[in-house]
Each structure stands twice: as C-alpha cells, then as structure tokens.
C-alpha cells in the first residue's frame, strides 16, 4: 500500500501541501518539546538536561518499530523507502564538523527555524551561518569533489552492515535507548543538585 506518494495513491500535486502539513507537525513537536532553546539542547552535553536525547531516541525507536511492523503488515514497502546512502569518509568528516557546530551554535537547522519563530536572535544568526556555510561549501566544492563522492557504500542498512536482521537492530536500539534513559536520568539528578538556578 504505502508509501502513498511514490506508489501514486496520492497524486504528486498534493506533495507540497503534505510537505507543509508535515512540517507544521514537525515544528510543533520540536518547539513544544523545548528544542527552540539552545540551552535546553546543549544541556545534553553538560548533563543538566537530556531532553534532546529523550526526544530523539524515543522518536527513532518509535519510528523504527512502526516501520518494521508496517512493513510486516504490508502497509508500507520498505524497499521503496529512501534509505540514506552511506558515503563513509565524507560522512565521518561531516558528522564531526556538525558535532562542533552543534556545541558552538546550540541549534541544528530544524530547531533553529522554530527558535526564529519565537523570536530568538541567536537562531537567526545561526541560520545565517548555515546559509553562509552551504554557500562556502558549494563555492569550494571542486576542491573536495573527489572526497565528497568517496567511500560510497550505497543504501546500506544497519542490519546489512552488521549481517543481522533489521528487526534485531530495532530491538538492540530499544534496549540501548532504555538503558540510556535510565542512566541519563541518574546523571541529571546529580548534576541538577549543584544547579540551583535553572530557568530557560
């Protein structure tokens, strides 16, 4: 049955309307969970607020479980889902650069949009930086074009990489998530003891 648009069940013309609606839902959840505050987000690195980890892991786990079940029921064809292709070395470099940018900026692109919506100047500067960064990347693209396309492993899934079924991957992920929830909860209690003022 699904995915609906690639299967032609929903005509292409609705694509942008749906994009807008999905975006609204996404933005609402992000803002309501507190992702519009950079100090909330970076709390995950200093142990005083693990909201990012909680939201992120819960979302990934729920979506993963849902996708596997939907595939089983025949509601969605996992073969037609866009699986992000893996480009090993550029992805490693990119992720490290993003990690530094994350701590410095305190946002990621999606959350910065919601932060702009509630009037954060730092988020506007962040998005400006994002714009500039992508511009710089495209300008200097010829210098690392070869690197950009290196290490192509195709649309490989986690299960395929480790040689196990993706159902098992999901279970492992859930277990890791639950353990992480518990540990971070303990850490947070401890760190918070020393922080009397906590207000965002």
């Amino acid at each position: 049955m699904g995915p609906l648009i690639p299967q032609g069940i929903i005509p292409m013309g609705w694509d942008f309307v749906i994009a807008l609606l999905i975006g609204i839902a996404f933005g609402f959840v992000l803002e309501a969970s507190g992702f519009s505050s950079s100090r909330n987000i970076t709390g995950v690195f200093y142990g005083y607020n693990f909201v990012v980890l909680r939201v992120f892991f819960t979302a990934v786990v729920v979506a993963m479980i849902g996708l596997q079940y939907f595939d089983y029921f025949g509601w969605i064809d996992l073969n037609q889902i866009y699986v992000l292709p893996t480009f090993l070395s550029p992805m490693i470099v990119g992720a490290i650069i993003m990690g530094v940018g994350f701590v410095l900026g305190g946002f990621c692109p999606g959350t910065s949009y919601t932060a702009i919506a509630i009037g954060k100047i730092d988020a506007m500067v962040f998005t400006g930086g994002l714009f500039l960064g992508i511009f710089l990347f495209s300008e200097f693209f010829p210098f690392f074009e070869q690197f950009y396309y290196s290490g192509n492993m195709g649309s490989i899934t986690i299960g395929e990489f480790f040689g196990i079924s993706n159902n098992l991957v999901t279970l492992i992920f859930v277990v890791i998530a639950v353990v992480a929830f518990y540990i971070t909860w303990r850490i947070e209690l401890r760190v918070r003891k020393n922080m009397i003022q906590y207000k965002f």
């Binding site: 946002f107 692109p109 994002l130 714009f131 500039l132």
Partner: peptide, 21 residues
C-alpha cells in the same frame, strides 16, 4: 558562536548528506 556554529553545520550537513533531522 552561533554564526560559526551555523557555518560549521552548513558545511558538515553537505558532507554528511543531511543534518540532524
């Protein structure tokens, strides 16, 4: 810091084929 972070995120997201979302 926010500006630098944005620039880094912009460059990184192109290499990484996508950002955190």
């Amino acid at each position: 810091a926010a500006g630098i972070g944005g620039i880094l995120f912009g460059i990184g997201s192109q290499f990484g084929r996508g950002c955190s979302s």
